[in-house]
Design a protein around this nucleic acid. Sequence first.
DNA 1: ATTTAGCACTCAAGTAAATCGAGTGCTAAC
DNA 2: GTTAGCACTCGATTTACTTGAGTGCTAAAT
Lengths: 340, 340
Amino acid sequence: MLTERQLLILQVIIDDFITTAQPVGSRSISKKDAVTFSSATVRNEMADLEEMGFIEKTHSSSGRIPSEKGYRFYVDHLLSPLRLSDSEVTIIRDAFTDKMMEFEQVVQKSAGILSDLTNYTSIILGPEVFETKLKQLQIVPLNDQSAIAILVTNTGHVEHRAFNVPVEVSTSDLEKMVNILNARLRGVPLIQLHEKLYEEIGGLLKAHTDQYEKAFAYLRAALVEEQPTKLYIGGKTNILMQPEFRDLDKVRSLYATIEKESEMADLLRSDDEGIRVRIGQENPFDAMQNCSLITASYRLGNDQIGTIALLGPTRMEYNRMFSLMNVLSKHMTSTFRGWY
Amino acid sequence: MLTERQLLILQVIIDDFITTAQPVGSRSISKKDAVTFSSATVRNEMADLEEMGFIEKTHSSSGRIPSEKGYRFYVDHLLSPLRLSDSEVTIIRDAFTDKMMEFEQVVQKSAGILSDLTNYTSIILGPEVFETKLKQLQIVPLNDQSAIAILVTNTGHVEHRAFNVPVEVSTSDLEKMVNILNARLRGVPLIQLHEKLYEEIGGLLKAHTDQYEKAFAYLRAALVEEQPTKLYIGGKTNILMQPEFRDLDKVRSLYATIEKESEMADLLRSDDEGIRVRIGQENPFDAMQNCSLITASYRLGNDQIGTIALLGPTRMEYNRMFSLMNVLSKHMTSTFRGWY
DNA sequence: ATTTAGCACTCAAGTAAATCGAGTGCTAAC
DNA sequence: GTTAGCACTCGATTTACTTGAGTGCTAAAT
């Protein structure tokens, strides 16, 4: 186990490295107020810490930098919760006192705040739609040939899609059909919409002329569309600010990874609540070897959970990030709770 | 005026530099099949071309690179229209045979194609909304406290916004009001919506109870919202691929410039049709000194014009870009023509 | 038994000089 | 007018040297 003194030294090394991005030497440690012993002593302790795998050297005579194990230990045991600065608190609070009523807007804004306040890249995963139910279906004819189908869910989400109206189908035909569909489909989870549509179509077709068939085919095409869980990325170019990404090749491969929406979504999708950190190798993607990913969940309604995440170098300001993510996820959750 | 031989040499220099990004020397020029004379002759001609300002040296004993004047001349007089490769044609055609009915979708896809096919950054300016008229207003109550206002325009554009419903206002009150508003506002240009709302509200308020006032205040807040012309950016990180942007500071300032939406929009907004190129200094922004911006217009309906643009280094594959932009803007225009 | 001062050693980073080579301009011959 | 030839230029690359922050180890001090 680590002695008090070793803990102190490890803490100093990591704190220092997080702010300067430079290896930390024994002398600079011993000069810290909290450190009362000499640099030689520090060197001895550092040798032990290195042997235990918490820190490492970049070359044989360099200062020390935290290893991934070091960061892990730091995050698990050494993290002193940081009070956010007044300006940070203000920015967040102001953003959320604006009356926001749309899910997308809240998410976008949150992603923006997160990346602006951190200089890292924020990634927000929209909540799963399993539980989202159809609230209303609407058709707005634009002209003879086209109309717009609008679908509103109980979560206030609006999907819309224009489609062609075959000439044989009159506006009133469409209207009737929509009324019927509305009556039968209201409250149906979106995820079942497709099959329900098939079930319902039988009855409809029997009861009505074949105009319906045609119109329905179009309408169905308009409505039933894969709707992948959406990923919102903020401050993508912040990565360029980080000294560890001076190398453009790294940046490129990282971008390539982030942009694989479905894989990123899988990575972020989390079952557990609370904040989770993945440090370096703990991330599944090669391009993220030098990155840490902090994820936190927010709730929309009762059982829909989305995730907000921050991607930065392993040398991340973990304590500030924790506070930020905490505050933000709470704000998001409570904003959403106000709605449903 | 330039001799045939000078034209040939200029052409070779620019073509070469565009593909290699390296200064072009006399020997490599004289080795080209089309060039029958010696490197010494080429050197003499190059000296003349340099004196005329079409090419320049990076240092006293380097090969030549095109000057901005050189690019300008190249674009104006030397450009050989390039046939797009089969795969390019296929990609574009396939993208547009997908039945797309939504403006946003088309624009997004176009921006994506453009940046994918070019490794430059694509910027698309949505058309002005001056002429867009209100088609229909819709209110979908979600629950006791909130509802969604949906606004559909004659161009098929859908705006929606959730808003709080004051407890005193019943769903049927809202419904009535929407009916009235629909009756009075249909066909009103969006840009006049705000004042029309004020005009109409007088009559409404007189005719009805004060519940309307409250509901109306909310509804108005929900509907009348600045709707800046939208800018779609694709392949923002492609810039990193270009050797001229090895320097991160340049990249950062370029990003900063691109992200100033309103200024970029002003820059792109063009009165004339056709393709236009701004080379280097011809661009108004400092950060774009080493960039060229190619813009082309597309039409949505009769008099709504939007712009697609490509931003890359001055060393751009102009001929391929011209072909691409041409094809794409035609595809976009004709797709939209199908709708209205 | 710790702690610390002292010292030899290491190695990345910075600097200066040396070399290389692609390219030029000019001159003189073709 | 064209071209071969040659001296010259200058960025890029290589090599050698210096610097300095930092280490590990030993021996003395506490």
